[in-house]
Amino acid sequence: MFQVLATIWALLIGIVLIMLGNGMHFTLIGLRGGIEGFTAGELAVVTSSYFVGFLSGARFAPVLIRRVGHVRVFAALGSFMSAGLIALTLLAEPWAWTILRVILGFCMSGIYVTAESWLNNAATNETRGKVLSAYMIAQTLGIIGAQGLLTLGDAGTATLFIGASILVSISFAPILLSISPAPVIEVAKPMSLKQLFISSPLGVVGTFLLGGLYATQSGMGAVFGTQVGMSANLISLFIAMLFGGVLVLQYPFGWLSDRMDRRKLIFGAAVLGGAACLLGWLYGADRRALMVAAFLAGGVTTPLYALFLAYTNDYLSTEEMPAASGGLVFTFGLGAIAGPLITGYAMQVFGPYAFWLVLAVTSGRSRCTRFTAWRSAR
Protein backbone atom coordinates (compact mmCIF):
# COMPACT_ATOMS: atom_id res chain seq x y z
CA MET A 1 0.00 0.00 0.00
CA PHE A 2 2.77 2.45 0.89
CA GLN A 3 4.49 1.65 -2.41
CA VAL A 4 1.30 2.55 -4.25
CA LEU A 5 0.86 5.82 -2.31
CA ALA A 6 4.47 6.68 -3.08
CA THR A 7 3.51 6.82 -6.77
CA ILE A 8 0.38 8.97 -6.31
CA TRP A 9 1.26 11.35 -3.45
CA ALA A 10 1.74 14.26 -5.84
CA LEU A 11 -1.70 13.71 -7.36
CA LEU A 12 -3.32 13.59 -3.90
CA ILE A 13 -1.67 16.86 -2.88
CA GLY A 14 -2.87 18.41 -6.12
CA ILE A 15 -6.42 17.22 -5.40
CA VAL A 16 -6.38 18.79 -1.93
CA LEU A 17 -5.25 22.13 -3.37
CA ILE A 18 -7.72 22.15 -6.22
CA MET A 19 -10.59 21.21 -3.90
CA LEU A 20 -9.63 24.10 -1.60
CA GLY A 21 -10.05 26.48 -4.53
CA ASN A 22 -13.18 24.83 -5.89
CA GLY A 23 -14.78 24.62 -2.44
CA MET A 24 -14.20 28.33 -1.88
CA HIS A 25 -15.69 29.19 -5.25
CA PHE A 26 -18.90 27.25 -4.62
CA THR A 27 -19.68 29.21 -1.47
CA LEU A 28 -18.46 32.50 -2.92
CA ILE A 29 -20.92 32.27 -5.82
CA GLY A 30 -23.87 32.50 -3.43
CA LEU A 31 -22.30 35.15 -1.20
CA ARG A 32 -21.07 37.46 -3.95
CA GLY A 33 -24.21 36.94 -6.03
CA GLY A 34 -26.30 38.23 -3.14
CA ILE A 35 -24.04 41.25 -2.74
CA GLU A 36 -24.32 42.01 -6.46
CA GLY A 37 -28.11 41.84 -6.26
CA PHE A 38 -28.66 38.69 -8.32
CA THR A 39 -32.18 37.30 -7.99
CA ALA A 40 -32.83 33.76 -6.73
CA GLY A 41 -33.76 32.71 -10.27
CA GLU A 42 -30.56 34.12 -11.70
CA LEU A 43 -28.48 32.35 -9.06
CA ALA A 44 -30.33 29.10 -9.79
CA VAL A 45 -29.35 29.35 -13.46
CA VAL A 46 -25.75 30.19 -12.53
CA THR A 47 -25.62 27.22 -10.16
CA SER A 48 -27.13 24.77 -12.64
CA SER A 49 -24.81 25.84 -15.45
CA TYR A 50 -21.90 24.28 -13.54
CA PHE A 51 -23.42 20.84 -14.02
CA VAL A 52 -23.95 21.43 -17.74
CA GLY A 53 -20.21 21.86 -18.05
CA PHE A 54 -19.68 18.99 -15.62
CA LEU A 55 -21.50 16.55 -17.89
CA SER A 56 -19.60 17.78 -20.97
CA GLY A 57 -16.23 17.44 -19.26
CA ALA A 58 -17.00 13.89 -18.21
CA ARG A 59 -17.56 12.88 -21.83
CA PHE A 60 -14.62 14.73 -23.42
CA ALA A 61 -11.90 14.19 -20.80
CA PRO A 62 -11.20 10.56 -21.85
CA VAL A 63 -10.68 11.78 -25.42
CA LEU A 64 -8.18 14.39 -24.24
CA ILE A 65 -6.36 11.80 -22.12
CA ARG A 66 -5.99 9.51 -25.13
CA ARG A 67 -4.48 12.37 -27.13
CA VAL A 68 -2.04 14.03 -24.72
CA GLY A 69 -1.94 12.05 -21.47
CA HIS A 70 -3.01 12.49 -17.86
CA VAL A 71 -0.47 15.09 -16.72
CA ARG A 72 -1.09 17.53 -19.56
CA VAL A 73 -4.86 17.24 -19.25
CA PHE A 74 -4.71 17.88 -15.49
CA ALA A 75 -2.45 20.91 -15.93
CA ALA A 76 -4.40 22.39 -18.83
CA LEU A 77 -7.79 22.07 -17.14
CA GLY A 78 -6.36 23.47 -13.93
CA SER A 79 -5.05 26.49 -15.83
CA PHE A 80 -8.41 27.22 -17.44
CA MET A 81 -10.14 26.77 -14.09
CA SER A 82 -7.77 29.21 -12.41
CA ALA A 83 -8.42 31.80 -15.11
CA GLY A 84 -12.19 31.29 -14.80
CA LEU A 85 -12.12 31.94 -11.06
CA ILE A 86 -10.40 35.30 -11.51
CA ALA A 87 -12.71 36.20 -14.41
CA LEU A 88 -15.71 35.94 -12.06
CA THR A 89 -14.62 39.21 -10.44
CA LEU A 90 -14.11 41.05 -13.74
CA LEU A 91 -17.72 41.03 -14.90
CA ALA A 92 -20.34 40.37 -12.20
CA GLU A 93 -23.26 39.75 -14.54
CA PRO A 94 -25.52 36.66 -14.49
CA TRP A 95 -24.93 35.81 -18.14
CA ALA A 96 -21.16 36.08 -17.75
CA TRP A 97 -21.15 33.97 -14.59
CA THR A 98 -23.31 31.35 -16.34
CA ILE A 99 -20.73 30.98 -19.11
CA LEU A 100 -17.85 30.90 -16.67
CA ARG A 101 -19.57 28.29 -14.51
CA VAL A 102 -20.01 26.05 -17.56
CA ILE A 103 -16.26 26.31 -18.11
CA LEU A 104 -15.49 25.65 -14.45
CA GLY A 105 -17.77 22.62 -14.39
CA PHE A 106 -16.15 21.25 -17.55
CA CYS A 107 -12.69 21.66 -16.06
CA MET A 108 -13.57 20.16 -12.69
CA SER A 109 -15.23 17.04 -14.06
CA GLY A 110 -12.31 16.55 -16.44
CA ILE A 111 -9.95 16.76 -13.48
CA TYR A 112 -12.03 14.16 -11.64
CA VAL A 113 -11.88 11.80 -14.63
CA THR A 114 -8.13 12.30 -15.02
CA ALA A 115 -7.41 11.75 -11.34
CA GLU A 116 -9.66 8.71 -10.98
CA SER A 117 -8.37 6.93 -14.07
CA TRP A 118 -4.80 7.69 -12.94
CA LEU A 119 -5.48 6.22 -9.49
CA ASN A 120 -7.18 3.13 -10.91
CA ASN A 121 -4.22 2.59 -13.19
CA ALA A 122 -1.83 2.75 -10.21
CA ALA A 123 -3.88 0.40 -8.02
CA THR A 124 -4.63 -3.31 -8.16
CA ASN A 125 -7.84 -5.09 -7.21
CA GLU A 126 -6.25 -5.77 -3.81
CA THR A 127 -5.35 -2.11 -3.10
CA ARG A 128 -7.95 -0.18 -5.11
CA GLY A 129 -10.33 0.35 -2.19
CA LYS A 130 -7.67 1.93 0.04
CA VAL A 131 -6.23 4.04 -2.78
CA LEU A 132 -9.63 5.48 -3.71
CA SER A 133 -10.36 6.06 -0.02
CA ALA A 134 -7.21 8.17 0.20
CA TYR A 135 -8.44 10.11 -2.85
CA MET A 136 -11.84 10.77 -1.27
CA ILE A 137 -10.24 11.85 2.01
CA ALA A 138 -8.07 14.31 0.05
CA GLN A 139 -11.20 15.75 -1.57
CA THR A 140 -13.01 16.07 1.74
CA LEU A 141 -10.06 17.76 3.43
CA GLY A 142 -10.05 20.33 0.65
CA ILE A 143 -13.79 21.02 0.90
CA ILE A 144 -13.72 21.40 4.69
CA GLY A 145 -10.56 23.51 4.61
CA ALA A 146 -12.11 25.82 2.02
CA GLN A 147 -14.84 26.83 4.45
CA GLY A 148 -12.19 27.92 6.95
CA LEU A 149 -10.33 29.95 4.32
CA LEU A 150 -13.49 31.89 3.53
CA THR A 151 -13.28 33.56 6.96
CA LEU A 152 -9.99 35.21 5.98
CA GLY A 153 -11.47 37.72 3.53
CA ASP A 154 -14.50 39.66 2.33
CA ALA A 155 -16.72 38.13 -0.36
CA GLY A 156 -17.46 41.66 -1.57
CA THR A 157 -13.89 42.07 -2.84
CA ALA A 158 -11.76 40.09 -5.26
CA THR A 159 -9.44 38.78 -2.53
CA LEU A 160 -11.08 35.41 -1.92
CA PHE A 161 -11.58 34.76 -5.64
CA ILE A 162 -7.89 35.48 -6.25
CA GLY A 163 -6.98 33.18 -3.36
CA ALA A 164 -9.07 30.37 -4.85
CA SER A 165 -7.43 30.93 -8.23
CA ILE A 166 -3.95 30.77 -6.69
CA LEU A 167 -4.73 27.47 -4.97
CA VAL A 168 -5.95 25.95 -8.23
CA SER A 169 -2.91 27.31 -10.10
CA ILE A 170 -0.42 25.63 -7.76
CA SER A 171 -2.42 22.39 -7.54
CA PHE A 172 -0.66 20.86 -10.53
CA ALA A 173 2.84 21.97 -9.47
CA PRO A 174 3.44 18.85 -7.33
CA ILE A 175 2.48 16.66 -10.29
CA LEU A 176 4.63 18.50 -12.82
CA LEU A 177 7.64 18.54 -10.46
CA SER A 178 7.27 14.96 -9.22
CA ILE A 179 9.41 12.12 -10.56
CA SER A 180 6.58 9.67 -9.87
CA PRO A 181 5.47 7.92 -13.08
CA ALA A 182 2.15 8.77 -14.72
CA PRO A 183 0.12 6.37 -16.89
CA VAL A 184 1.25 6.21 -20.48
CA ILE A 185 -0.94 7.84 -23.10
CA GLU A 186 -1.66 4.65 -25.01
CA VAL A 187 -3.52 3.00 -22.13
CA ALA A 188 -6.87 4.67 -22.87
CA LYS A 189 -9.57 3.47 -25.25
CA PRO A 190 -13.19 4.57 -25.70
CA MET A 191 -16.18 3.00 -23.92
CA SER A 192 -19.82 3.96 -24.39
CA LEU A 193 -22.29 4.28 -21.53
CA LYS A 194 -24.06 1.19 -22.87
CA GLN A 195 -20.83 -0.81 -22.72
CA LEU A 196 -20.16 0.50 -19.23
CA PHE A 197 -23.64 -0.51 -18.10
CA ILE A 198 -23.18 -4.00 -19.55
CA SER A 199 -19.85 -4.31 -17.75
CA SER A 200 -21.19 -3.05 -14.41
CA PRO A 201 -24.92 -2.31 -14.11
CA LEU A 202 -24.51 -2.04 -10.35
CA GLY A 203 -21.82 0.61 -10.72
CA VAL A 204 -23.80 2.72 -13.20
CA VAL A 205 -27.21 2.63 -11.48
CA GLY A 206 -25.69 2.96 -8.02
CA THR A 207 -23.57 5.94 -9.07
CA PHE A 208 -26.62 7.69 -10.54
CA LEU A 209 -28.56 7.29 -7.29
CA LEU A 210 -25.52 8.30 -5.28
CA GLY A 211 -25.20 11.50 -7.32
CA GLY A 212 -28.71 12.43 -6.24
CA LEU A 213 -27.90 11.67 -2.59
CA TYR A 214 -24.68 13.68 -2.60
CA ALA A 215 -26.11 16.73 -4.38
CA THR A 216 -29.16 16.73 -2.14
CA GLN A 217 -27.07 16.61 1.02
CA SER A 218 -24.57 19.25 -0.05
CA GLY A 219 -26.97 21.49 -1.98
CA MET A 220 -30.20 21.26 0.01
CA GLY A 221 -28.75 20.75 3.50
CA ALA A 222 -28.52 24.48 4.17
CA VAL A 223 -32.03 24.99 2.78
CA PHE A 224 -33.35 22.35 5.19
CA GLY A 225 -31.54 24.01 8.08
CA THR A 226 -33.00 27.39 7.23
CA GLN A 227 -36.55 26.06 6.93
CA VAL A 228 -36.46 24.32 10.31
CA GLY A 229 -35.17 27.47 12.01
CA MET A 230 -31.52 26.66 12.62
CA SER A 231 -29.12 29.49 13.37
CA ALA A 232 -26.29 30.22 10.95
CA ASN A 233 -23.78 28.57 13.30
CA LEU A 234 -25.95 25.47 13.66
CA ILE A 235 -26.35 25.21 9.89
CA SER A 236 -22.57 25.37 9.53
CA LEU A 237 -22.22 22.61 12.11
CA PHE A 238 -24.86 20.54 10.31
CA ILE A 239 -23.01 20.83 6.97
CA ALA A 240 -19.70 20.12 8.70
CA MET A 241 -21.17 16.93 10.18
CA LEU A 242 -22.20 15.77 6.70
CA PHE A 243 -18.58 16.01 5.56
CA GLY A 244 -16.99 15.18 8.91
CA GLY A 245 -18.42 11.68 8.82
CA VAL A 246 -16.43 11.04 5.64
CA LEU A 247 -13.11 11.62 7.41
CA VAL A 248 -13.98 9.00 10.02
CA LEU A 249 -15.66 6.35 7.86
CA GLN A 250 -13.88 6.62 4.50
CA TYR A 251 -10.71 4.67 5.22
CA PRO A 252 -12.39 1.86 7.22
CA PHE A 253 -14.72 1.24 4.28
CA GLY A 254 -11.78 1.29 1.86
CA TRP A 255 -9.84 -1.14 4.06
CA LEU A 256 -12.79 -3.51 4.27
CA SER A 257 -13.48 -3.33 0.54
CA ASP A 258 -10.09 -4.91 -0.20
CA ARG A 259 -10.86 -7.79 2.18
CA MET A 260 -14.45 -8.77 1.38
CA ASP A 261 -16.97 -8.86 -1.45
CA ARG A 262 -17.48 -5.22 -2.41
CA ARG A 263 -21.15 -5.88 -3.22
CA LYS A 264 -21.85 -6.94 0.36
CA LEU A 265 -20.05 -3.88 1.71
CA ILE A 266 -21.99 -1.59 -0.67
CA PHE A 267 -25.23 -3.11 0.55
CA GLY A 268 -24.22 -2.68 4.20
CA ALA A 269 -23.18 0.94 3.69
CA ALA A 270 -26.47 1.70 1.94
CA VAL A 271 -28.43 0.16 4.83
CA LEU A 272 -26.51 2.30 7.32
CA GLY A 273 -27.13 5.45 5.26
CA GLY A 274 -30.83 4.69 4.87
CA ALA A 275 -31.21 4.09 8.60
CA ALA A 276 -29.49 7.40 9.33
CA CYS A 277 -31.89 9.22 7.00
CA LEU A 278 -34.87 7.64 8.74
CA LEU A 279 -33.39 8.78 12.06
CA GLY A 280 -33.25 12.36 10.73
CA TRP A 281 -36.82 12.15 9.45
CA LEU A 282 -38.32 10.71 12.64
CA TYR A 283 -36.24 12.46 15.31
CA GLY A 284 -34.81 15.50 13.50
CA ALA A 285 -36.41 17.88 15.98
CA ASP A 286 -33.83 16.65 18.50
CA ARG A 287 -30.64 18.48 17.50
CA ARG A 288 -28.39 15.71 18.81
CA ALA A 289 -30.22 13.08 16.78
CA LEU A 290 -30.07 15.40 13.78
CA MET A 291 -26.28 15.72 14.00
CA VAL A 292 -25.86 11.95 14.39
CA ALA A 293 -28.05 11.44 11.32
CA ALA A 294 -25.99 13.96 9.34
CA PHE A 295 -22.71 12.35 10.45
CA LEU A 296 -23.77 8.86 9.38
CA ALA A 297 -25.73 9.78 6.24
CA GLY A 298 -22.96 12.01 4.92
CA GLY A 299 -20.27 9.67 6.19
CA VAL A 300 -21.33 6.77 3.94
CA THR A 301 -22.10 8.77 0.79
CA THR A 302 -18.55 9.52 -0.33
CA PRO A 303 -17.22 6.05 0.65
CA LEU A 304 -19.98 4.55 -1.49
CA TYR A 305 -18.69 6.45 -4.51
CA ALA A 306 -15.24 5.00 -3.96
CA LEU A 307 -16.78 1.54 -3.58
CA PHE A 308 -18.74 1.86 -6.82
CA LEU A 309 -15.66 3.13 -8.63
CA ALA A 310 -13.50 0.31 -7.28
CA TYR A 311 -16.16 -2.33 -7.99
CA THR A 312 -16.65 -1.15 -11.58
CA ASN A 313 -12.92 -1.09 -12.35
CA ASP A 314 -12.48 -4.60 -10.96
CA TYR A 315 -14.18 -5.81 -14.15
CA LEU A 316 -12.35 -3.59 -16.63
CA SER A 317 -9.00 -3.64 -18.34
CA THR A 318 -6.45 -0.86 -17.79
CA GLU A 319 -7.20 0.50 -21.26
CA GLU A 320 -10.90 0.94 -20.43
CA MET A 321 -10.48 2.75 -17.10
CA PRO A 322 -10.26 6.42 -18.29
CA ALA A 323 -13.45 6.14 -20.35
CA ALA A 324 -15.16 4.23 -17.54
CA SER A 325 -14.26 6.98 -15.08
CA GLY A 326 -15.71 9.53 -17.49
CA GLY A 327 -18.90 7.50 -17.79
CA LEU A 328 -19.31 7.24 -14.03
CA VAL A 329 -18.66 10.95 -13.50
CA PHE A 330 -21.24 11.70 -16.21
CA THR A 331 -23.76 9.36 -14.55
CA PHE A 332 -23.05 10.92 -11.15
CA GLY A 333 -23.69 14.36 -12.66
CA LEU A 334 -27.07 13.28 -14.05
CA GLY A 335 -28.09 12.09 -10.61
CA ALA A 336 -26.76 15.29 -9.07
CA ILE A 337 -29.06 17.35 -11.27
CA ALA A 338 -32.14 15.24 -10.56
CA GLY A 339 -31.69 14.84 -6.78
CA PRO A 340 -32.03 18.47 -5.64
CA LEU A 341 -34.94 19.12 -8.02
CA ILE A 342 -36.92 16.18 -6.63
CA THR A 343 -36.02 17.06 -3.05
CA GLY A 344 -36.90 20.72 -3.48
CA TYR A 345 -40.34 19.82 -4.85
CA ALA A 346 -40.93 17.32 -2.02
CA MET A 347 -39.92 19.88 0.62
CA GLN A 348 -42.26 22.43 -0.90
CA VAL A 349 -45.21 20.00 -0.86
CA PHE A 350 -44.59 17.97 2.30
CA GLY A 351 -42.46 20.30 4.41
CA PRO A 352 -38.75 20.57 5.25
CA TYR A 353 -38.41 17.08 6.77
CA ALA A 354 -39.14 15.60 3.35
CA PHE A 355 -35.41 16.29 2.89
CA TRP A 356 -34.68 13.19 4.96
CA LEU A 357 -37.54 11.19 3.52
CA VAL A 358 -36.31 11.60 -0.06
CA LEU A 359 -32.81 10.62 1.02
CA ALA A 360 -34.18 7.53 2.78
CA VAL A 361 -36.26 6.49 -0.25
CA THR A 362 -33.30 6.97 -2.60
CA SER A 363 -31.14 4.88 -0.30
CA GLY A 364 -33.87 2.22 -0.25
CA ARG A 365 -33.95 2.07 -4.03
CA SER A 366 -30.18 1.84 -4.19
CA ARG A 367 -30.20 -0.98 -1.64
CA CYS A 368 -32.65 -2.91 -3.82
CA THR A 369 -30.41 -2.33 -6.85
CA ARG A 370 -27.31 -3.49 -5.01
CA PHE A 371 -29.04 -6.52 -3.50
CA THR A 372 -30.48 -7.56 -6.87
CA ALA A 373 -27.08 -7.21 -8.55
CA TRP A 374 -25.43 -9.18 -5.76
CA ARG A 375 -27.99 -12.00 -5.96
CA SER A 376 -27.85 -12.18 -9.75
CA ALA A 377 -24.06 -12.33 -9.73
CA ARG A 378 -23.89 -15.24 -7.29
Rank of each mutant, 00 (worst) to 15 (best):
P181R: 12
T140G: 07
V184Y: 01
I111R: 00
E36D: 11
F197G: 04
V246L: 06
L282A: 13
L132I: 12
G84L: 06
T226D: 12
S133F: 04
V246W: 08
S218G: 10
A373W: 01
V16G: 05
F295K: 07
P252W: 00
G142D: 04
T362M: 15
S236P: 05
G145F: 03
I8F: 00
G299P: 12
G364N: 08
S165G: 15
A44K: 06
I29H: 05
M230H: 05
F267G: 14
W97Y: 03
F54W: 12
G37M: 05
P201N: 10
L272S: 12
R128V: 09
I266S: 03
R128W: 01
V52C: 08
L256T: 01
L77V: 08
L359G: 13
S82W: 02
Q217A: 14
G339H: 06
L209D: 00
P94L: 09
G153D: 11
S200H: 03
E319G: 10
F74T: 07
A215V: 11
T7R: 15
N22C: 12
Y353N: 10
I99V: 14
G339K: 07
A188Q: 13
G244S: 10
L265H: 08
L104Y: 00
G333L: 04
G37E: 02
L17H: 07
L278C: 14
S79N: 00
N125F: 00
L90E: 01
P190K: 10
L152M: 13
I99Y: 02
I29N: 13
L43Y: 03
F243P: 03
S133R: 01
M347V: 08
R259C: 04
L177N: 01
N125K: 11
G221S: 07
Q139C: 09
R378D: 08
V71D: 10
F355W: 06
Y112N: 07
T89A: 14
G244D: 09
P322E: 03
M191C: 07
S171K: 06
R66S: 15
G219Q: 12
I239K: 04
P303I: 09
T369L: 09
W281E: 04
N22H: 13
S180Q: 14
V248M: 08
F355S: 04
Q139R: 00
L234F: 10
S56Y: 04
G273Q: 07
S218N: 13
S192F: 10
A310N: 04
